[in-house]
Design a protein around this nucleic acid. Structure first.
Lengths: 121, 121
DNA sequence: CCGGTCGTACGAAGGTTCTCGTACCATGGG
DNA sequence: CCCATGGTACGAGAACCTTCGTACGACCGG
């Protein structure tokens, strides 16, 4: 069934398996935080290749995997593309208000430090 | 001046130097998160030695240093003891609601998983 | 079927983190 | 003045994280 509908299925933690420490660790990386912010801003599912990131494809795959395995995003294949969506409802149910507060905090920090200050040399 | 008043002063980031990524990273460790929760519950300054932690003194020093350098706690010497206080106002001013939301999320997770589930073997 | 696009797997280098043990320093009480 | 207490410094080992390159697999469009 699941195999038949989704030949290239990806492993996700169930809602109950999501751990706060894992979510915080996932979001403590500037690149991953910027991915989540963009996902939240656009409010649509985005392909990995829709993001312009200062790293190679391999590294991009790695970061999206961390986000998926920590329960922050849901990923599904659509043709050759891999679409990413925030797991808003799961996170809201487990940690009410956390995602929005974090997004607000990230926006505040960007305003404070200047929009270019998230990358490292 | 500063030297005279506090011969054993400790380096802290200024409020403006506190970075969201650093705070999230500091709190993504279960041991450090439990320290912050206890600090928030008691609402008083606590010495490092007031915490019962499943690690050695050296490791305890390390974790408190991470919390201090990320801007989460303020540490001052009082005699031989080193007192720790949450930097509530600084964090609230930079990231409104974040600390309380995180503490609530941590409490919710503990309720969900059982009070013994924060240590690792 | 063939080529191009999108993404994965694997291995490796380099850096950081977590942990400990041992030796040490600062403070305050007898 | 000495010692007990509370904490630090340093070094080391293990584990983990981030990054990359190269080679490969899956799907779509012609």
């Amino acid at each position: 069934m699941t195999e038949r509908d989704a030949p290239r299925a990806l492993a996700h933690p169930e809602r109950e398996e999501i751990r706060l420490e894992g979510v915080l660790h996932a979001l403590s990386d500037p690149l991953r935080l910027s991915i989540v912010r963009e996902l939240a801003d656009r409010e649509v599912e985005l392909a990995c290749s829709d993001f312009v990131l200062p790293v190679t494809k391999s590294t991009t795959t790695h970061h999206f995997r961390v986000l998926r395995e920590s329960g922050v995003v849901r990923q599904i294949y659509r043709g050759t593309a891999k679409m990413n969506g925030l797991r808003r409802e799961d996170l809201q149910s487990l940690f009410p208000g956390l995602l929005d507060t974090l997004l607000t905090a990230a926006a505040a920090e960007e305003t404070r430090l200047g929009p270019q200050a998230q990358a490292r040399p």
